[in-house]
């Protein structure tokens, strides 16, 4: 991997991890489009580099929501020490996040590698990206239909039930499929559970943080795997860039979703996925 490739991959990871467009899908499609045949996803070097990028992204998310995480962490510890749940809003949100993280934790560990082997090529990633676009449209349409009535009110995050949080967690687990966005899927399920767009996005980003961090932390041994020789300069620059772009992305998206919906990302996923699929079918990319 060249230094330029490392920089492009880091920026791509930082942006696409949080935009509802699938980072996994983009790390398959963009290298294929750019003709980077020297990058192999199963290569220990590449896996180790991806671990570093994910750590950068997770740290950026924690930094952006540092006040929320401090409050949620305190509330979580207080409830554990007390051995009883109170009516505190932060405590409830903390436990909703814990419960919502369980499905993706289990499914991710059990099926991530198998799914990656089965679908980790251009054509499936392009098809799933198009499906992701359709999910964005469907979610937005259902949300507008649910709230067509003048008295229909949106719910705050703490009004979610635990089964609903598990459902959002399952939505997140669909991101194991390259092309399906973690944040997009969890936002759509959040919208269907009655959250408004900004709250669904916030809950999705909060829910993604422990998953991205834990996934990266569990893969840290890959950095010392036989055959993994990540260049320190590439790793450091990559992690910093991924973190900076992840921070800027989440700052942009939290403002964007106050006034906009998912349709722009739906169009992007449909068109980009269709383009990649056509190019793969006529043999231009592979």
């Amino acid at each position: 991997m060249t230094f330029l490739q490392a920089i492009i991959l880091a920026v791509l990871q930082g942006v696409s991890e949080l935009f509802p467009v699938s980072s996994l899908g983009h790390t398959i499609l963009i290298p294929a489009l750019l003709g980077w045949h020297n990058i192999h996803r199963a290569d220990p070097n590449f896996l180790a580099f991806v671990v570093v990028l994910h750590l950068g992204t997770a740290i950026a998310l924690i930094a952006f929501y540092r006040h929320d995480w401090a409050k949620l962490g305190r509330a979580f510890v207080a409830s554990v020490v007390r051995g009883k749940l109170s009516d505190d809003v932060d405590e409830r949100v903390a436990w909703l996040l814990v419960v919502g993280t369980v499905p993706v934790g289990i499914l991710g560990l059990l099926f991530k590698e198998k799914v990656s082997i089965l679908f980790g090529t251009v054509a499936p990633a392009a098809i799933f990206l198009m499906i992701n676009g359709l999910v964005m449209f469907a979610g937005d349409w259902l949300r507008r239909r649910q709230h067509a009535a003048p008295d229909a009110a949106y719910r705050p995050i703490e009004a979610l039930t635990y089964p609903q949080s598990v459902a959002v967690g399952f939505g997140q687990a669909f991101a194991l499929l390259p092309g399906i966005s973690r944040s997009g899927a969890s936002m759509v399920v959040g919208l269907l559970c009655g959250l408004d767009m900004a709250s669904a996005a916030r809950y999705s980003f909060l829910l993604a943080t422990p998953v991205i961090f834990a996934a990266a932390a569990l893969e840290i041994p890959e950095l010392w795997a036989p055959g993994a020789h990540v260049v320190a300069a590439q790793a450091i620059v990559g992690a910093v860039l991924a973190g900076i772009f992840a921070y800027l992305s989440v700052a942009f998206l939290t403002k964007y979703f106050k006034n906009h919906d998912l349709r722009a990302f739906g169009w992007y996923c449909l068109l980009f996925g269709a383009l990649c699929l056509i190019l793969a079918k006529i043999g231009v990319i592979s």
Binding site: S79, V80, G83, K84, L85, V98, V102, G105, I106, L109, L218
Partner: peptide, 24 residues
């Protein structure tokens, strides 16, 4: 190791759930 860590975390969450239920 990763599976063991996951199951250990789930065990801790389950015991916390038990404690909340018992105290409630």
């Amino acid at each position: 190791l990763k599976h063991a860590i996951l199951y250990a975390v789930l065990a801790v969450l389950s015991i916390l759930w038990y404690r909340f239920q018992a105290n409630a």
